[in-house]
């Protein structure tokens, strides 16, 4: 029953993601290797990672995120100073030149999912929409891996 529901949800969201590639600019953005970690309940923020590639020949600017999973999704950068102290801060806009790939990966940037509306369950997916300055949007289905996952497939 549950798997039928997931299949239906995916059938509804997948074409949506493809349909948004109508415009030039954001329309030429390809998102690959997306993954996230499962959460324990909803009190702790989640994080998602992916490669965002500009396959077109115009500059694009990523301005924000949207998802029904979290009340406050934001792109963050983790930085570690020379004393080894790590801190996290919102990144703001990210310009991606033609042919360039911006990686959200552990040790660098992540999509921070604050105010989770439901727990992130291992094995499920959630839709995450990337918003661009030209008004274009790209939606990806992000697989949820285990809490101890280290990448999209290990």
């Amino acid at each position: 029953m549950k798997s039928i529901l997931i299949a239906m949800l995916m059938a509804m969201t997948l074409p949506f993601g493809l349909a948004t590639s109508a415009r030039a600019g954001a329309g030429d953005v390809v998102v690959e290797n997306a993954w996230s970690r499962a959460s324990i309940g909803t009190s702790r923020p989640g994080a998602a990672y992916m490669d965002i590639r500009n396959a077109g020949d115009e500059n694009v600017t990523l301005t924000g995120l949207r998802t029904d999973l979290a009340g406050m999704p934001e792109i963050h950068l983790t930085s570690t100073n020379e004393q080894g102290v790590s801190s996290m801060s919102p990144v703001g806009e990210i310009a991606i030149a033609p042919g360039e790939t911006v990686a959200l990966a552990p040790g660098g940037m992540h999509a921070m999912l604050m105010q989770l509306r439901r727990p992130m369950e291992e094995g499920e997916t959630f839709p995450l929409t990337l918003l661009f300055s030209d008004g274009g949007e790209v939606t990806v289905e992000v697989p949820i891996r285990g809490i101890a996952a280290r990448g999209p497939d290990d």
Partner: peptide, 17 residues
Amino acid sequence: FTHCPDVCPTTLADISD
């Protein structure tokens, strides 16, 4: 800390590895 979304699970997963 366990409310840490990026650094701490990454470190714990690295150590596990």
